[in-house]
Design a protein around this nucleic acid. Sequence first.
DNA 1: CATTTTTTCAAACATGTGTTTTAATCAATT
DNA 2: AATTGATTAAAACACATGTTTGAAAAAATG
Lengths: 210, 210
Amino acid sequence: MKPPDTRQRILDAAESLFARDGFRGTSLRAITGRAGVNLAAVNYHFGSKKGLLDEVIKRRILPLNKIRKKRLEEVRDLAQSSGIPPDIEDVLTAFIEPTILFKESEPGAKEFITFIGRSLADPDDTVRNAFHAVINPMARFLFKTVSKALPGLSRELLFWRLHFTMGAFFHTMHISGNPGPGFMGMKTDIDAQSLVNLIIPYVTAGMKAK
Amino acid sequence: MKPPDTRQRILDAAESLFARDGFRGTSLRAITGRAGVNLAAVNYHFGSKKGLLDEVIKRRILPLNKIRKKRLEEVRDLAQSSGIPPDIEDVLTAFIEPTILFKESEPGAKEFITFIGRSLADPDDTVRNAFHAVINPMARFLFKTVSKALPGLSRELLFWRLHFTMGAFFHTMHISGNPGPGFMGMKTDIDAQSLVNLIIPYVTAGMKAK
DNA sequence: CATTTTTTCAAACATGTGTTTTAATCAATT
DNA sequence: AATTGATTAAAACACATGTTTGAAAAAATG
């Protein structure tokens, strides 16, 4: 049973259009038009527009989460075996680096990362919930690891600092890579590794402020 | 020429619905329904839905920008007269504090702040541009003042760090105040002054990292 | 008070949306 | 080769959208 590539074509087109115009701003006709397939194909293969959204998300997030989890576990286990708490910089890097490098890992991934960054601020419940469902377990694990690295901070303070970190991170995800000059005439299409090298010191310093 | 409060009612209803459901997700029928006015009143008073958006933004942003500009100028002038560069913490506070405190300044302002936080990540050009038009001059002035406080940093590094700061800030703006438990079962409806006290040390440390 | 201007109102307009339907076409299996 | 099942295709459906229209009502003006 060779899979006709109709599904893939729809997923690719949807991913790129969702990233550019948002979930609500993208019509099924735009998606099927770009994919070169019939309008009804979306509902045939994915049941509904929301079903398509879920598949677009899962296709990229599940592999990415595997990598991030593994990296976090490595940091945690290494610290555990040496008896000292993990370094907060290592923890943050384990989470952030694979996400940003993911952008250059395969075609379309970059657009997907943009889509994530935008969706977490989306007013539409459908979109936010679809992402939260696959991201929350990851965030929970991150929180636990971070709290091991900064045992001195209260749970509440830790929450807020991680919250700010995620803000800086998400904002970067959806804005970097935009062609043309950005906010201060600055170019934002920096390469992924340089971006990692920029954001890690910032969030590390923020997490252990004062 | 006493203004009939139809305009105000529409602006209030639109502000609150825009914040909750976004610009695209809010229909004129929903706005006029909540405002208790006729559907055609929006196009009569504001020309179009976009015209309404512009008015919703300007009504709050212009006074807010006045305050932020004044606070920033105070910090700049104080440093200038004493001959030493301004403290980066003071600069960030001058910009961030009035924005967050603004939420509790008048009814509806809180929803507006949420709206800003969301809109800057909005995929819709109409929304992003409408905000950028009134926010960019402010951001430019902030950038100049920040670069005086951190003269050692390159223009590019400064840009990225300010970028991360804005990310943490915007994310906080649209997520704090949400009722119910947030990302880790943590309550996000903290009072404004406490929020200021939490975010300032974080972004200050981030800006002068390493 | 009569008249002009501003504002409200109900209805319609044109277009776009996600989804469903029903028949045609393709692929695989017997 | 015939038949069964999966996929594609064009069309219609039901509804929601921003906007415009033209008449009624209200307010302001002389």
